[in-house]
Simulated scan of single mutants.
Amino acid sequence: MIKIVTDKTPTVDVASILTAQEIEGINEYIHHYPQARAASLDALKLVQKRNGWVDDAQVNAIANLLDVPVTDIEGVATFFNRIYRSPVGRHVILVCDSIACYLTGYEELAAELKSQLGIEFGQTTADGRFTLLPICCLGNCDKGPSVLIDEDTFGPVTPDQVAELLEYYP
């Protein structure tokens, strides 16, 4: 059997998936660009603010609002590593593993984070507080090793600073 794949986005009841504020915000973004498709990333970031991640129904709703194929929205969502397609903790810790951070203590820092959190990369603590992820670059190369917690960049971070740093994020 041959499966036929189309770019046709299934019609969904957008108002039952997205909040009125999200719909209004996405419509605002649409007006800032010559093509609605250009608002894809902005729409994904806006929707992600509510739950910390974007589920399949929300991807479909965004595609409907922008009148683009769902595959286009999915492509944007999976390309950008700060759009999360599965649940994450209340706080996301991104550990830079670029060559600059690697040479300045990445391995020791990553080991300490894993030890204190009791998780590996790609996992979330049992209490849902933290998700630990690697990232290829934070653009903080002169202050490596660096971490980003939510929207806060720290560096250089030493293993002995990890416990104190985690305390700031309840």
Rank of each mutant, 00 (worst) to 15 (best):
E112A: 13
F130T: 04
R90W: 00
L46G: 00
V54H: 01
L18W: 04
G105K: 02
A163D: 14
R37Q: 14
V147T: 12
Q58S: 13
T124F: 08
D55F: 02
Y33S: 05
L117K: 07
I4H: 09
A100F: 09
L166K: 07
R37N: 11
V54S: 00
P69K: 10
V68T: 07
Y102M: 10
E107W: 00
D56S: 12
I119N: 06
D127N: 12
V14R: 05
L44C: 01
L18A: 01
E120A: 14
V59M: 12
N140S: 10
P145T: 15
R90L: 03
V162R: 11
V12L: 14
D72P: 04
G155D: 08
Y29D: 04
G75I: 07
P159Q: 08
L94M: 12
V68W: 10
A110N: 06
G118S: 02
G25Y: 03
A15I: 11
Y29G: 02
G144K: 00
Y84F: 13
R85Q: 05
T78M: 05
G105N: 11
A39R: 06
A57K: 06
Y29F: 14
E108N: 11
A38H: 09
L166P: 05
R90H: 00
C141K: 09
I4C: 08
V59Y: 13
I99P: 04
I135P: 00
G75W: 04
V59K: 11
L166H: 04
L133P: 06
S40V: 10
A163C: 05
E120R: 10
I23F: 06
A15H: 15
E167S: 10
T104D: 10
A38G: 09
P10Q: 13
Q21D: 15
N64T: 03
V54R: 00
G89D: 01
G144L: 02
F80I: 14
G52L: 01
E164I: 14
A163G: 12
A15P: 05
K143A: 12
D67I: 13
V12E: 05
L44W: 01
Q48A: 01
C137G: 10
K8R: 03
E120C: 09
G155W: 03
R50I: 02
R85E: 03
V157T: 10
I2R: 14
